[in-house]
Amino acid sequence: MIPELMIALSIGAALFGIGLYGALSQTNLVMIIMGVELVLSAALLNMVAFWRYLHPDVTAAKMYVLIVMAVMAVEMTVGFGIAVARFRSRGSVEMEEARELKG
């Protein structure tokens, strides 16, 4: 039992839960992206925690952290790009309307 690891992982879990709730409950594309960001940051936290308390000698773990950060940036870039495009064509980025007002 490593208490610090437990703490870090629990906080990661909490962030994951919040992010999941946000991604599912929000109607707006931009807010959904925020939820996903939280989920990804939970993943980051877990990776760093595992690296620190289990295998500080494995540098590849940090490489994964960098990649996840890149994924966050990429997700935001593409997400906002789509938001701009949707807003231009439909005047809305609400997902409710994405479902109902297709075409």
């Binding site: 807003f87 231009r88 439909r90 809305s92 609400e94 409710e96």
Partner: peptide, 27 residues
């Protein structure tokens, strides 16, 4: 009222529909 949309849901499409568009098409 559109089926599937919760009551009191405010339509953003409705809000932005009549706004003048900028040259880049965003209202």
């Amino acid at each position: 009222e559109v089926p599937g949309i919760e009551p009191h849901f405010m339509s953003m499409v409705d809000m932005t529909r009549d706004l003048p568009a900028s040259p880049d098409g965003l209202r």
